[in-house]
Computed example of a mutant assay.
Amino acid sequence: MTALSHPTPRSSVTPVFAQSFSTKDIPPQDQFDAWRALLADTIDLLPTIEASDSFAAEFSSWTFGNIVLTRTLYANAPARRWRHRPRSFLDHWCVVLARSHAPRNGSPSREATRQESLSFRSLALPFEGQAEDTEVLTLFLPRDFCREELEDFDQAHDLDINPQLGALLAGYIDNLARQLPHIPPAQAQGLATATRALVAACIAPRAERSEAADASLSSLLIDRARLVVRQNMASPEFGPEQLARLMAMSRSKLYRLFESTGGVAHFINRERLREAYRRLSSHRDSPSIHIIGNEVGFVDHSTFSRAFRREFGHSPSEARERSLTKLSATPLDVRPPETGPVDAEHEA
């Protein structure tokens, strides 16, 4: 795992500030030195390759509130060794999610299995490591992000994280990397507050933190479930059992997550219908209503129409007619209408 440099704070018109860097346009013989200079604020990257070898890497970072998330992609997973810089001016905690893709029994890389690990460290404390990760996501939090229990976090430096809590935190960090480029400014500070609470609950869990973190944990799991459903909704057979398997959750835990909002099957059906609404309203030349129904997992047209009317109060053809009317007048907001508590609470 690799902790990357913390970008120097800058003033910005919006609370979400992005940076990027790549070695691809740098001569191969200079790529390692350029990458080492990028990381110099936080770690000392030790030479492990010949001076003439290339070192292909891409770096992105997003600042929201007083938190920074960085994402690094390595091509061909070059081996790396590093150590924390003593007396670094960045007295921050970092949560590091590192991934590597290992070929399965000598199979081609496209069939590789994904391995990942999660760690928690203080940049101000000694640490040395080595890895060949292909992707690294690092969440940087200021030293005083949880002032009341600094001692708890000092003791957590480089210790194993509870596997269940670690899986939730890893999923949250992964979701952040996908969503931060699209987060509106008004939501950035609230997202930083929720992130601090979730890290505290997962790294140094205490009973009094559980309530503060519950909303973030539930939101994370529902966001993950929504992504899995959207990736698989074209299959009419996709249901609660498949969703539980792909999320690596027990069916009982998955059912508890959606118990208060109509159940897992209702959630899957709603996501199918919301996607159908979006496609019906997206543009004038979208496919026929029958094809759109098939694309979101409805084999029978009449079943699709009845479910659509129950969800939105009008038929698919009426939804298309309304969208065409709006398109002729103003740019269309293609989001489907809010239809229940799941969407009101968890829609990004």
Rank of each mutant, 00 (worst) to 15 (best):
P331T: 09
P341D: 09
V296C: 04
A207S: 13
L46F: 00
F238G: 02
R245P: 00
P86W: 14
C146F: 12
D223E: 11
Q115I: 08
P86H: 13
S218D: 13
G297M: 06
L168R: 06
H314W: 08
R310F: 03
R309V: 03
L191F: 11
Q179E: 11
H84G: 06
D91T: 09
F238C: 07
S107H: 03
Q19D: 14
S52V: 10
S286A: 15
I203F: 04
A329W: 06
I67P: 02
A319R: 02
A276F: 09
L191E: 09
E347I: 05
L191T: 12
S282M: 11
I43T: 15
A234Q: 08
P28F: 00
P7N: 07
N175C: 08
E271C: 13
F21R: 03
I289A: 09
L4N: 08
F312H: 06
S302K: 13
H157K: 09
S305V: 12
I49K: 11
S216Y: 03
P108Y: 05
I291D: 14
Q164C: 00
A204F: 07
G293Q: 06
L4Y: 08
I222V: 15
L169G: 05
I222M: 07
A234P: 00
S218W: 00
A77P: 01
S216N: 01
A244E: 06
D343Y: 03
F59S: 10
T138P: 01
R256W: 05
P336T: 11
S5L: 02
P240S: 14
Y74P: 02
L125P: 01
M1Q: 06
E271M: 07
L191N: 00
N66K: 11
S260Y: 04
L327F: 13
F21Y: 15
F59Q: 01
P337E: 09
G293D: 10
A344Q: 13
H182M: 07
F308G: 07
G129P: 09
D133F: 04
V16P: 03
A215N: 04
A207H: 14
A200M: 07
T138M: 12
R272T: 03
